[in-house]
Every structure is written in structure tokens, then in C-alpha cells.
Design a protein around this nucleic acid. Structure first.
Lengths: 121, 121
DNA sequence: AAAATAATTTAGAATTATTCTAAAAAAATT
DNA sequence: AATTTTTTTAGAATAATTCTAAATTATTTT
């Protein structure tokens, strides 16, 4: 675990904003006083492979990263693209009813207008 | 509505397999005896904008297209990447309970092993 | 702790998927 | 049928990501 890798993991862990690779690069670059973009990608992959972070992918939306493995959904603001986590009790039971127990994981994204954007609308 | 556009729409509509842009290009190319890849992208966008098709995006997965606007989830096979539709009764009610009624759309993808891949496992 | 081995980082080139450009062709309108 | 608008096309351009191979850093062995 190099300082680059530790920094990247920390950035993903410490921020609920779910950054893009590019944003993580900028933050890491500042914190470390220099890092290669390739290193950021390397480590995002390494950390993903190691099961320490997860990727968030959605339609027309740059991939972001999340460090929580507690099952949850993502709310995506249609205006500012801010991502927030949400809990959906009973979802897995519902899913089992629909397709049985043979699934291994799920991705759930919901589009909305976040509070900030609703106020400024 | 040109024959290129009609062909692309037909490919997306007539096939449950949810093709990628590249696959659609190959199929359209055969059917029409020549088409430009740029035209395929142009039309996938135009059709998406027009609300005639939807895009399916997931982690580590090339975008695919779907012509159904009946709300439903997508099952993605972890081995062969085959995509199948599924219904999940009561999901929207559950979602409303969790986050209220302010959402506009959702994407739901579930990873599993499809029947074929389970047999060949 | 020094030497040897393995893993990581880096800059920049390469790749992939997609978008842009500007001219040609086709379709729609007058 | 002529004019205007839209679409198609090939190829160039772009953006995001991955690859490469040398340099650096970390880890293991001695």
C-alpha cells in the first residue's frame, strides 16, 4: 500500500460526493503535490479488484466511486449530477420474489432533483 | 425517417438481446449493404432524444439499447453479458416509501448467471 | 542493514468509443 | 421542378482509459 494508493482510497472513503476519476486525480494531485493520471486509474482498478471500492455507472454519466458495500441505491440529481445514497428496506426480499435467489448483486439508480436544485429552480 | 433510421429502430425493436452500438452497426450494415458508423451513432441519439429507444448502462459493460418504455429491470449475466428484462411488481411503491414521489425515472440492473451459462458451468 | 526481488509509479504513446466536420446525397417543402 | 432542410458519409478529432517500458519504491531474503 503506497502513499498514492492510500491517498486515493482515502479520497473515495472520506467523501460522500462520489467523485469521478478526474476529480480524484485533481484532489490526489493537490494532496501529494503531484501524481500521474495513470496511477489514479491503476489504483482505482486495484482497489476495485481488491473489493475496497465500487464503481457507480449510469446513463450519460461519468463513472464515480463509492466505498460502501452496504447495499444501497443511488439518487442522481438530473440537474447537477450530485449523487446521494439511499436505503431501500425490503428491496432484496422483493427482488427474490421477482427472480428468485440466484442474483449476486444489483445496481439501482434513481433520477430526481436534489434539494439545492429544487430551491434554485 | 430515412431507411437507415428505420432500420436501426427496427433492429432495436425486434431484438430482445439489447445490442451494443457496434452490434447494431454490423446488423444494419448487412441489412442495408453499407452504412456509416457515424450514422448509427447519430440515429441512436436521435431515437433516444425522440423518446423511441432507451440506453442501458451498467458497470464494466458496453451500453446497449432497449425499445421498451414499460418500467422494468435488467438481468445481466455475469458470464456472457446477455441481458434479459424482468418485472418487479411493487417496486415503485417501495421506492416511494423510501424517497417520496419526487423521482422521475430509475435504472435497475441485477447480476446473475443466465440459464445457459448455469448449464454450461 | 544490504542485496535481491517484486510491485508500483510515471510520462507519454496507443487504443477505444464516440463525436465532430464539411461535403455529398436524400428528403421535404415550396 | 427548384429550393430548402435534413441526413448521411468518410475521415479527422476528441475524450476517457489503457498500455508500455523505464525508473522508483516497497518488500523479502540474506
Amino acid at each position: 500500500m503506497t502513499k498514492q494508493r492510500a491517498t486515493i482510497l482515502d479520497i473515495v472513503r472520506s467523501d460522500k460526493a462520489h467523485h469521478t476519476a478526474e476529480e480524484i486525480y485533481h484532489i490526489a494531485n493537490e494532496r501529494l503535490g503531484g501524481i500521474s493520471l495513470a496511477t489514479v486509474y491503476n489504483n482505482l482498478h486495484a482497489l476495485e479488484e481488491a473489493g475496497l471500492i465500487r464503481r457507480i455507472t449510469a446513463e450519460h454519466f461519468a463513472d464515480r466511486y463509492d466505498s460502501s458495500f452496504v447495499p444501497h441505491g443511488h439518487l442522481i440529481c438530473e440537474r447537477c449530477e450530485r449523487v446521494t445514497d439511499f436505503n431501500i428496506d425490503g428491496f432484496e426480499a422483493l427482488l427474490s420474489d421477482a427472480i428468485g435467489n440466484s442474483f449476486s448483486s444489483y445496481e439501482l439508480k434513481v433520477r430526481h432533483l436534489c434539494t439545492k436544485c429544487r430551491e434554485n429552480a
